[in-house]
């Protein structure tokens, strides 16, 4: 599996750390309530198909990436820097 880091180019999956759904970028306000926090931290869309998830180029440039991917085929559709308002 290979991911094309926008800063470094196509790299092997070994260089990346996987965190989970890109939902993690959408942190609720502290007072958003129990349901919002449950949604944020635990509940998952978990699609069989296109998903957006977070990868960290740990053994590379250190960028956090939002990767649009297909969970059935492992096709990588798009990679963006998390810090560039990818949400």
């Amino acid at each position: 599996m290979r991911i094309t880091c926008p800063l470094c180019g196509a790299r092997d999956r070994r260089e990346f750390y996987y965190r989970g759904a890109a939902l993690a970028l959408e942190r609720p306000a502290p007072d958003a309530g129990e349901q919002a926090w449950d949604d944020y931290l635990f509940l998952r869309e978990n699609p069989a198909g296109e998903t957006r998830d977070l990868w960290y180029h740990a053994n590379g440039c250190g960028a956090w990436l939002v990767v649009r991917r297909d969970t059935r085929s492992h096709a990588v559709l798009e990679v963006r820097l998390a810090g560039e308002g990818a949400q």
Partner: peptide, 13 residues
């Protein structure tokens, strides 16, 4: 393998 997947197959790492 550490990434979300429904492929029922993994990768070399």
């Amino acid at each position: 393998d550490m990434y979300a997947s429904y492929a029922a197959r993994g990768n070399l790492p």
